[in-house]
Design a protein around this nucleic acid. Structure first.
Lengths: 341, 341
DNA sequence: TTGTATGCGTTATCAC
DNA sequence: GTGATAACGCATACAA
């Protein structure tokens, strides 16, 4: 391995000068700099980041931790760009312009995962936690050691900065559309995992909105896990009933897509026989027939802001934790029963 | 920041003993270990990875470099899980079981990107390069400094290990299906970017297969960039002609999806008026109507193997570079003109 | 403008 | 079993 000592020796200067050239210090004489640069090039020298990090006190790394929901790993290959992938792209895009790099890991909650998160924390200057992956105690203990920003976590915890989408307002608007414009009265809700704050918020908002509408009610709540497969299962449960509800609102697009496809497979027409809606506005929602009425949230913006905040917090650790709520917007397509425009 | 010195002081032992406990050495007396463990827990001590890496000679990090194709960043949000995302998941999944973590960056080719790649190399024990992102000279200079494995790169370079899908055999089978089963004679090919080895291989295989079929020929080759938008553009070009070809083979699914949607928007029926096929077998290909006939490649397996190989190479740097070719398989759905089964 | 010397936090090699 | 202490590669006061 080539070190700064090798470069210094070959160039006939001290390691300090090499270091100055590397850091771009302007006190180095032009010809010295050129000579050193030449040697660096010739030797293919790459300064070791561990040594630099140790010396400088910063590693130039930000870690992103994402949640893998229960399903098979194989599923990933057969599924769409999901929440976590958008966060990855957003964070990477922000970091691309800086000297930081993005480190990442996914996992399912548990002791094992907690250990891995600590291992990641050791390698990074700050942590981005996507979804609720740590209990309050673990989160607090982590924030004591390293800057942490939580995305789509439980808004209750003030231990770290939090970035959330306004699930409630979007879902409320969607419910109003179903019960208002379409006058659906017998509704069904396909909920997400109970440990996902987003899922809980969406369900609560939907139930509340429907409860506030005279004559309307929620027939049945079916619990899924955000996966397309669980949407399929939900549809099967619906198909086993004596009568379908008028509308099925799903806690995310993936489940809605699974439900639509399974209903269609059984000969049920969407939205003629039953309306179906989603949440997220992912790419396949526009592709599917009928195009999905859903609520869009800007996951990318969520990731972007959270990353910026983390960098700000690394720069000045004293910052008071804050929470930010990003707007959501209802997207009317045709799966709710609206006509194509 | 808590260090090993703090832990040693509080526990009343030397730093050596703390280190032994951390590394799980079995020479430490049980009660000493318990005491140290207690202090570590109480202090929330996380051993610094920079120092560990510097001392131990390994950083416990593998870097993945992916290519961002020309389109807007915004597009990412509105698109599907792509090649690079599958590689990310595959690599992460492999690393999850080890002490390594995954560092990543995306970018578009250029001087800027090369610099960033070197910065990544400084932070990692090995590099995973997805697609052809470095010229032969740059690649060679990099491999001299750090273990490198290339995924879907140019098979010509023997500088690093290479993992590829067998584009040729899959595309040849697809062409045979179009000209054989369906007897299409006037064909069109929507090619990918010329700097993508996969795209080039697919195009070459298609052209060769059609050329070998009597009476059949390729009307027109339209160049896209693998994005859905470029598939839309290709469709517009087709719509501007006096007559459509009988079949349009696209170099990937994204472009095929764009083409199908744009053709349908113009009132053209797929496959009744024109057949369309893709390559990759991504998730939306099953969702779209009509379901896409395509060629499946296991990107996940590609990433998995490449990551394993990189770890092997890190363990024993002397390994001779090797290339591995993974099989592809034709997937018949209905966009080619076959009936739903 | 350049060189010398020290510290960063951890591991490992010695002694004890 | 445990404790001093010398690396590891780089950055930076401080000297020159």
């Amino acid at each position: 391995m080539t070190t700064i000592y090798d470069v210094a020796r070959v160039a006939g200067v001290s390691t300090a000068t090499v270091s100055r050239v590397l850091r771009g210090s302007d006190v180095v004489r032009a010809d010295t700099r050129q000579r050193v640069l030449g040697v660096i090039e010739a030797l293919g020298f790459i300064p070791d980041a561990s040594a630099r990090g140790l010396s400088w006190g910063r590693k130039g790394i930000i870690a992103l931790v994402g949640l893998n929901r229960g399903t098979d790993e194989i599923d990933i290959e057969r599924s769409s760009l999901m929440f976590i992938d958008h966060i990855v792209h957003a964070a990477e895009q922000v970091l691309r312009g800086t000297e930081y790099s993005l480190l990442l890991t996914f996992g399912t909650r548990g002791e094992q995962f907690d250990k891995r998160i600590r291992a990641l924390a050791a390698k990074a200057d700050g942590l981005l936690l996507a979804e609720e992956i740590l209990g309050p105690r673990e989160l607090r203990s982590l924030t004591a050691q390293v800057p942490v920003v939580v995305i789509a976590g439980n808004p209750g915890q003030a231990a770290a900065d939090a970035y959330l989408s306004d699930n409630a307002s979007g879902m409320t608007a969607l419910a109003a559309h179903l019960t208002g414009q379409h006058r659906y009265r017998r509704l069904c809700f396909v909920a997400g995992p109970k440990d996902a704050p987003d899922a809980v918020a969406r369900q609560a908002a939907f139930e509340q909105a429907v409860a506030a509408t005279p004559d309307s009610g929620i027939d049945q709540v079916i619990y899924g896990d955000f996966s397309e497969d669980s949407g399929v299962s939900a549809a099967r449960i619906l198909l086993g009933r004596t009568a379908l509800p008028q509308a099925v609102a799903c806690a995310n697009d993936q489940m809605a897509i699974g439900a639509v496809r399974e209903l269609q497979r059984a000969g049920v027409r969407v939205p003629a026989d039953v309306a179906v809606t989603g949440f997220d506005d992912l790419y396949p929602s526009r592709i599917i027939d009928p195009p999905l009425t859903t609520v869009s949230q800007s996951i990318h913006e969520l990731g972007r802001r959270a990353t910026h905040r983390l960098m700000a917090r690394i720069a000045s650790p004293g910052l008071a934790p804050q929470a930010e709520l990003l707007p959501t917007q209802i997207v009317i397509r045709t799966s709710c029963g609206c006509r194509p425009q």
